[in-house]
Amino acid sequence: MSVSDKGALRVVRAGPLALLVDDGRFGVRHLGVTQGGAADWFSFRWANWLLGNALDAAALEIVIGGGLELEAEADSTLALMGADLDARLDDRALKPGATFTIRAGQRLVFRQPRNGLRAYLAVPGGLEAPQVLGSRSATPREQLGGLHGDGRTLQVDDKLAWNGRAVTGRPLPFDPAINMALSGNWLALVPGAQIGHFSGASLSRAFNLPWRVDDRADRMGVRLVGPKLHCRLGSMISEGIPLGAVQVPPDGQPIVLLNDRQTIGGYPRLGALTPLAAARLAQCLPGQEVRLVATAREHALRTHRRCLAAFR
């Protein structure tokens, strides 16, 4: 079934952090412009898939929930994916992993994380927003993208609008409770060139002991707390930083760099998480335990291809 759908949601309460995202900003890293985009790209794409959207259509990334409240201005079909933030449509509980109908005047509230950290709300055809440097993703630190093009996160009375056609009744090909971005505590890491500069004991600890996700975590990066790692390289001349880079500053506690990372930096790195592992980490709450597992590039790419093939 397909319905033409022009609609809008008004922001009644902004919550701590909700921002407009798409796949991110590419081809501009040499300008010092960060990637941005959905931190859990896997759930974000499934949110769009549920509505039959282009997989990179702009959607809302809702972090933590914390009381974000949206009111519908027209009847519409929306999709929710990613973290379970105890969402309510008026008084009805909404679970991620499906589309739902919202009527004019109904309110959608995101309360608190029950599983995962980031929920994705997709709308028919994608959210309307200006393209800035090839993307609609908001990167607040850079004042780029988002609803108004200036990087702002959602504010009270912002209006989220769309004009598209929703496909309904398209079931996820997997159980949303076992969403790969939300389950398991293994983070696959492709070892990088500087790994040989870490002491043998450090490498053994890095890959055999658990790491705790610190509360110093945001869209730029996530600190891991655990055994102190020692690298013979103190600091290096700054060079490009890829998504998921696991850098180790002199305090020996790794920082995993995510979507809003700075474009160049000078700490030695163990390597970089695979894209799926980066999405997984972006869904982890502070205090959660994770483990790093070294994986060969070829294997990482095969897994990545399998992941993408599922969207067909």
Binding site: H30, I237, S238
Partner: peptide
Amino acid sequence: DLVPSYTTLM
């Protein structure tokens, strides 16, 4: 993306 820096290009 291609990111040139002081001594490298990523």
